[in-house]
Every structure is written in C-alpha cells, then in structure tokens.
C-alpha cells in the first residue's frame, strides 16, 4: 500500500496513513545544524511546514525556534519516523529527545507510487 503522509490543521501534526503520529509543541535536539549558533539547537516545534517521504524515512521541515538563543525559522529536512514495511504501513516515530541531524536534501523524495 502507498504510504500517505501530510500535515494538517495549520501544521499542527503529521498524519501517516490517516493516523496522527507527530505533534507540535515537543522539543527536538538538533546537532550539526546551521539553524542557529548553538552547539546543539534546543528546538521547539511550532508547526510542520512540509512533509515528505524518502523511503523508509518520513521527513518534515518544521517551523519553530531554539529556546536557548531565540533564533526562529524553519529546519532543513528532519527524519520524524519510518515506515519500514509499506504493506503494514506501521509508523515508528523517532525519539524527539535524542539528537537529530537535519539535512538538506541531495536527492528528490521518492515519487508517490
């Protein structure tokens, strides 16, 4: 089955296969990021701006701010979870309190099947 991903309600949450999986208002720790000057960005997710699939990763660009320095903006693509088996469609979210590495995409997301 095709994995269906979108953000809804003004970017309040990410839906994966019609199930609410990732919400705003969590803190994410971002490393090796040019989001702000902090060594580790203590990033408050305020809204999901874009979502995509780079199989098996579910990715998002998130609007928010670093609560340490106050810099605000939109992150590069961040993996928020995975759908390992598209047949089952089961979503495995990442632990947002762990360290994450936002990346600029170097290849296009897989087109929808």
């Amino acid at each position: 089955m095709t994995t269906d991903v979108h953000q809804l309600d003004d970017g309040a949450w990410i839906s994966v296969n019609d199930s609410r999986e990732v919400n705003v208002s969590d803190l994410w720790l971002l490393a090796r990021s040019d989001f702000c000057g902090c060594e580790t960005t203590d990033f408050l997710a305020e809204g999901f701006v874009k979502v995509g699939i780079d199989y098996p990763d579910i990715e998002a660009r998130i609007a928010g701010q670093c609560i340490a320095c106050g810099e605000s903006g939109v992150t590069d693509w961040l993996t928020v979870g995975r759908v390992v088996d598209p047949e089952s469609g089961e979503f495995y979210g990442v632990d947002h309190e762990s360290i994450h590495f936002p990346e600029k995409r170097t290849r296009l997301a897989r087109p929808p099947e």
């Binding site: 919400n23 705003v24 208002s25 408050l44 305020e46």
Partner: peptide, 9 residues
C-alpha cells in the same frame, strides 16, 4: 492544550 492540536501550552 486542553483540546487543541496546535497549542503549545
């Protein structure tokens, strides 16, 4: 946050 998806607090 009592009911709203978007709220932070």
């Amino acid at each position: 946050t009592e009911f709203c998806s978007l709220s932070i607090v």
